[in-house]
Simulated assay, not measured.
Amino acid sequence: MFVYLLVACDGLDESQEKKLKKQLPELRAALQTYAHANTANQVMLIDQCNSEDCADWQLGISQPIGKNAHLKFPVDLFNNLAKQHGIDCEIGTLENNERDPVSYFGKSEGRGDVYLLAEYLGL
């Protein structure tokens, strides 16, 4: 199963959008570093932040997941980004380039729990 984790960029107020735009280079760098370090695990960077409107942005990663333990590193990465940058994250399944959101976690939603998220994903 392929899963994706994205920085939640929609539904932000003006101050949140300003903050996200300012933090984009750091977020992008952290995700690029993770993706490059895990190319052997087929981790792919999702970076579609060309629009002026943050609601149109897609920033995150996708990767195959076979069991609960495989979720630990990406969920920890996004938990750390949420804590450091005050963002929320979206996790879901990816099939035929179609994303199906399953859950949100982060600053306003609370820390993501690997085992609970794995259950939501059907692992």
Results as ranks from 00 to 15, higher is better:
H85E: 00
Q58I: 03
S51A: 13
L31D: 08
E90W: 07
S15F: 11
S51C: 04
G60Y: 12
K107T: 12
L71P: 01
C54L: 06
R111P: 00
A55D: 13
L5H: 10
D76Y: 09
N41F: 08
G92H: 14
P74R: 12
N50H: 09
R28N: 13
L24G: 03
V102S: 10
Q58F: 07
K19C: 02
V102N: 01
V114T: 15
A40K: 12
K21N: 08
K18R: 14
A40E: 13
E95F: 09
N38L: 05
S103G: 01
L94Q: 08
P64F: 08
N97K: 14
L59R: 01
S15L: 15
K18V: 07
R28M: 05
Y120C: 06
G110M: 09
D76Q: 14
V114G: 02
C9H: 04
Q23I: 03
G110W: 09
V43P: 04
V114E: 00
S103W: 09
P101E: 01
S108N: 15
L71A: 06
Y34A: 06
I46E: 11
L6P: 01
Q42V: 02
A37S: 13
S103H: 10
H36A: 12
N68H: 10
G122W: 13
K21Y: 04
G112R: 13
E109Q: 14
K22A: 12
A69K: 15
F78E: 00
L20W: 08
A82Y: 05
D53R: 14
L24R: 06
S15Y: 12
P25K: 03
M44G: 01
Y104W: 13
N41S: 12
L45M: 13
E17P: 00
F105C: 04
L24E: 14
P101W: 06
A37W: 03
I91F: 10
A8C: 09
L121Y: 05
A69H: 11
Q58V: 03
L24W: 05
E90I: 15
R99G: 01
C49H: 02
D47C: 13
D13L: 05
I46H: 04
C89N: 11
G112F: 07
V114L: 02
K21R: 14
G86I: 10
V43I: 10
G122N: 11
G122R: 08
A29F: 10
L24F: 14
C9K: 04
V75S: 03
C49I: 12
E17C: 12
P101Q: 06
Q16T: 06
L121H: 05
N38C: 05
K83L: 10
Q63S: 05
L31Y: 11
L24H: 08
Q32P: 00
R28H: 09
Y115L: 08
T39A: 11
N68F: 02
D47F: 07
F78V: 10
T39L: 14
L81F: 10
A29L: 12
A37I: 00
A69N: 10
D10T: 07
L77H: 11
C9E: 02
E52I: 04
N50S: 14
